[in-house]
């Protein structure tokens, strides 16, 4: 890897997901790679969800940040395959998410709708699913019967 590539990847750690401001786009697994293309660089990103409105903002922020850091020729390309999965989040990232008050995705399972998700506030598993759909595409709504708090959970896909 050449120096500029490394520098770009490092800089991208400063681009945060506008919907989940505690995670940057590297931690989210959105950045799939940086390639050198005729005199410039191509940043490959993958959408978390097709309809995620944050993608456009993220794309703009990548361009703004890199331009301001003097990396001129930049192209952002969306890749769909392999499609984004919550498995690309590291354990460290999941802990961060929990600390922010969003229950992190548990392993690789779409079956989360049948499971008792652990409440991020009181850690009880006496919880129930309110809705598979939440304030953003990536989250479902749950309710904790123990601390009587509604909470969000980052869905597993």
């Amino acid at each position: 890897m050449n120096q500029t590539k490394e520098k770009i990847l490092k800089l991208l750690e400063d681009v945060y997901d506008p919907e989940i401001p505690v995670l940057n786009i590297i931690e989210m697994g959105i950045v799939r790679g940086v390639n050198e293309i005729d005199g410039g660089y191509e940043i490959k990103i993958t959408p978390t969800y097709s309809g995620c409105p944050a993608m456009k903002t993220i794309e703009d922020e990548i361009l703004d940040l890199l331009h301001s850091e003097g990396v001129e020729k930049i192209k952002v390309t969306k890749v769909y395959s392999p499609s984004w999965t919550t498995n690309w989040m590291s354990e460290k990232t999941k802990i961060k998410l929990g600390g922010y008050g969003i229950a992190p995705p548990e392993e690789n399972s779409e079956e989360f709708i049948f499971k008792k998700i652990t409440c991020p506030f009181c850690k009880s598993t006496n919880t129930k699913l309110t809705s598979e759909f939440g304030s953003t595409s990536c989250k479902s709504l749950h309710f904790c019967n123990n601390c009587l708090q509604p909470f969000e959970h980052f869905k597993c896909i």
């Binding site: 959408p47 969800y49 097709s50 309809g51 995620c52 409105p53 969306k78 769909y80 309110t130 809705s131 598979e132 759909f133 939440g134 304030s135 595409s137 709504l141």
Partner: peptide, 19 residues
């Protein structure tokens, strides 16, 4: 909950159409 669900599904479909 249904308002949110239908809005989410709409967004997915519009995002797919954009692709």
């Amino acid at each position: 909950e249904e308002d949110i669900a239908l809005g989410n599904i709409a967004l997915d479909l519009i995002g797919q159409s954009s692709a």
